[in-house]
Design a protein around this nucleic acid. Structure first.
Length: 466
RNA sequence: GUCCCCAUCGUCUAGUGGUCCAGGACAUCGGCCUCUCACGCCGAAAACGGGGGUUCGAGUCCCCCUGGGGACGCCA
């Protein structure tokens, strides 16, 4: 049997971190089994679905590298099929028309709640004869759920979970306006698409019971279910659009790498022994349901940053330059010159070690391409005074006469220069760093000088004297 | 409120009855390296929520409590 999974987001908002992880798990599971991973956009709620959201979801998944099989499926296009299934259910007396008004339903729920019961539909239209049907109300169609007994789901993550059927009410499967609801269309589409494993957030667990009943009513094969625990915000509650969760696009803008996000998300709620750094190949080879934990986990940006730092360091230098270029562009105002790009390329290796995000990397590399005279930060300025300027002036003379402009000879020269004056190296290096980079923090100042080149180095030093 | 689920360091987790006075990672704190900051390396502090069982033996199995979460829509 070929494994077929799907990610089925509703395009009512951005692709958030929890959705991204659900997609990742579905993708990994399919890849692991050599199966197919499908994308289905659940856009049956026309009022809330937007094309912007669809675009964001698609962009986000692509950016994350979660390629789906074939074309994305739009659930709204299957509407005719969904309605047809509703008709079948109606014919077989497995569904019925409900003429309750919205107000009536609200009242019903409030009453149940105040009586300490679970708010749910009481089934008042379940067995009424067609003679007492009001003509002024368009009915919704409800599924005739079993009232006795219980429904068990053998969840791949949660194990056997049982719910008494009396807890489950007759859900609406077709709205009064004739549109199918999620409960119905998800089942129909999963069946039609041949989905073998439904992997989704824990918040869908109770839906699974109702959906299983639909499968059974229709005598369809049930897929396996795997409900994965939710990702909580730092405060321990479900992340939502207005609560701690950011769109995947935001993480991209913050300078995170897809590889890092994938690794982080995978490790959040899934484990393979003590493995922390997990390449995609290994993730595919190792991914299984047994590695998924059952407790929700909290989103920790710091750990993501640390992982991002790791993957940043693994980036090829040219790739790193390519990735920071668009971030640098607004500051530079124009396309980078060849010289600027060359400098970045040579300097980026040392910079990568020091950055956690692409944003930081771009920021820390700016001094290499900044126009003269370079801006000196307030903090850095403190290292410059009459004494140190005089020192740098003298050093400039020496540097001018240096034979070989390479890291080793520069370092030798400066060390000798410092010791000849009975100065600790940092008393020379720090003012030098400030004058060349405008900050107090940078890679080895000798390497910086090599990257800048003799001419630029001397020019920057001379800028200081004026 | 009702139903369902969950519970190991601050966080993510390893642990599937003895090898656990509980291991790893991030974060924190020391130290080394050192021209600054990182990286790297070494080290420290830090957890089985509580109570009952079962068992020769429980972080691991069972029950209760507590705590946390999720679901209760003509949303998905």
């Amino acid at each position: 049997m070929t494994v077929i999974t799907r990610f089925a987001p509703s395009p009512t908002g951005f692709l958030h971190i929890g959705g991204a992880r659900t997609a990742l798990f579905n993708w990994l599971f399919a890849c692991h089994h050599g199966g197919k991973f499908c994308l289905r956009i659940e856009d049956t709620d026309k009022k809330r679905s937007t094309s912007d959201a669809i675009k964001e979801i698609i962009d986000g998944l692509q950016w994350l590298g979660l390629q789906w099989h074939g074309e994305a499926i739009y659930q709204s296009k299957n509407r005719a099929r969904h309605t047809k299934v509703v008709d079948v259910l109606l014919e077989r007396n497995l569904a019925y028309r409900c003429y309750c008004t919205p107000d009536e339903l609200i009242e019903m729920r409030e009453k149940a709640r105040s009586n300490g019961l679970q708010p749910r539909y009481d089934g008042r239209w379940r067995d009424r004869s067609s003679t007492e049907v009001p003509t002024n109300i368009r009915p919704a169609i409800r599924f005739k759920a079993p009232r006795d007994g219980s429904t068990v789901i053998n969840d791949q993550v949660q194990g056997n979970v049982t719910v008494d059927n009396e807890q489950l009410d007759d859900m609406v499967i077709l709205r009064a306006d004739g549109t199918p609801t999620y409960m119905l269309s998800a089942v129909v589409d999963d069946h039609d698409m041949g989905i073998t494993h439904v992997i989704r957030g824990d918040d869908h667990l109770t839906n699974a019971f109702r959906q299983i009943q639909v499968y059974r009513a229709l005598e369809w094969n049930e897929p396996a279910f795997a409900h994965i625990p939710l990702i909580h915000g730092p405060d321990g509650t479900k992340m939502s659009k207005r609560h701690g969760s950011l769109g995947i696009g935001t993480y991209r803008e913050m300078g995170f790498l897809p590889t890092a996000i994938r690794n982080y998300l995978l490790r959040l709620g899934w484990s393979h022994g003590n493995e922390e750094i997990i390449t995609t190949d290994k993730a595919i080879a190792w991914f299984d349901f047994s590695g998924i934990g059952r407790a929700p986990s909290r989103f920790d940006l710091t750990k993501l940053e640390s992982l991002n730092g790791h993957y940043l360091r693994e980036l090829k230098d040219e790739e790193a330059v390519r990735l920071i270029e668009p971030i640098l562009l607004p500051q530079v105002g124009q396309k980078l010159t060849k010289q600027q790009r060359d400098r970045l390329f040579v300097g980026i290796g040392a910079l990568k070690l020091r950055a956690k995000t692409l944003l930081e990397l771009a920021e820390s590399s700016f001094f290499y391409i900044a126009p003269r005279p370079i801006k000196i930060s307030l903090k850095a300025e403190k290292h410059l005074n009459e004494n140190t300027k005089r020192l740098l002036y003298e050093l400039t003379q020496k540097l001018q006469e240096l034979d070989n402009w390479n890291s080793e000879s520069i370092e030798n020269l400066i060390r000798e220069f410092a010791s000849s004056r009975d100065l600790k190296l940092n008393l020379v290096a720090q003012p030098l760093r400030v004058s060349l980079t405008g900050t107090t923090v940078s890679p080895s100042i000798f390497e910086v000088m090599v990257v800048l080149g003799r001419s630029e180095t001397l020019s920057r030093l001379r800028d200081l004297q004026t």
